[in-house]
């Protein structure tokens, strides 16, 4: 039998998340966010959190719910445009914010999961993102350029949303809800995955697994997914 990673609720999964911890939170905008984990953090009232997430939700959904309750001390994100409460807290100094390039954010997650402590990227060289960072000149594809050294993230927990997962922790993401989720799943000291559908070992095609269960510490069946759409754009028939 494979190793069983199942826990029975968000409450059980997040029981040892304490104040002042650092969390990786999956999703792009409101797409593919761990809704059940976020609700549980609101319920628990955990404070002083550092959240690494591409965005900060909107005022009344996603990480915006934690911002409203002032549970987040610091956000590390690439884009925070759609959240008025976020902007207010940032400009007033209540919230510490570190903005980093999106590709750098993604790769800092991936490298944590690959066991590589640092890497070089050209993103942000010559801008304020590069201030105080080590840099080095490399030739890539015949072009000499300056690169910044960036570190892999070191986070206490990763909170991940997937589509289907089995009890061994193997998971599959759906459409663009994949985004940062598989990268953060590899990067947490403890990785918690909530899924829309929890299945038995053997029910997922191993060829289709995106995150192997070795990266997943706890998996649970999520409930009441709202899956809110941020910008509903359509065309007429």
């Amino acid at each position: 039998m494979p190793i069983n990673k199942v826990v029975y609720s968000a409450e059980e999964a997040l029981a040892d998340i304490r104040d002042n911890m650092t969390l990786l939170v999956g999703g792009f905008g409101l797409c593919g966010i761990p809704e059940n984990c976020i609700s549980e953090l609101v319920r628990k009232g955990t404070k002083g959190l550092t959240c690494i997430s591409n965005n900060a939700g909107v005022d009344d959904f996603g990480l915006g719910l934690l911002l409203q309750k002032k549970q987040i001390r610091k956000m590390i994100s690439s884009y925070v445009g759609e959240n008025a409460e976020f902007e207010r807290q940032m400009l007033s100094g209540e919230l510490e914010v570190e903005l980093i390039p999106q590709g750098t954010l993604a790769t800092r997650c991936m490298m944590a999961g690959y066991g590589i402590p640092a890497f070089y990227t050209p993103a942000g060289y010559g801008t304020e993102v590069g201030e105080g960072k080590e840099s080095r000149r490399f030739t890539y594809k015949g072009q000499e350029k300056d690169y910044l050294m960036e570190y892999a993230f070191d986070a206490d927990f990763a909170l991940v949303k997937a589509w289907k997962g089995d009890t061994a922790g193997n998971v599959i993401y759906r459409q663009t809800a994949r985004n940062f989720n598989p990268l953060m799943a590899m990067a947490g000291k403890i990785t918690i995955v909530e899924v829309e559908e929890l299945v038995q070992p053997g029910e997922l095609d191993p060829n289709q697994v995106h995150t192997p269960g070795i990266y997943v510490d706890r998996i649970f069946q999520g409930t009441h997914y709202e899956k809110r759409i941020e910008q509903r754009t359509v065309r007429s028939k």
Binding site: Y79, G81, E87, I100, T104
Partner: peptide, 10 residues
């Protein structure tokens, strides 16, 4: 205004 660079810097 600080919205962030998103993927633009990369």
């Amino acid at each position: 205004m600080v919205k962030g660079m998103g993927g633009a810097m990369d």
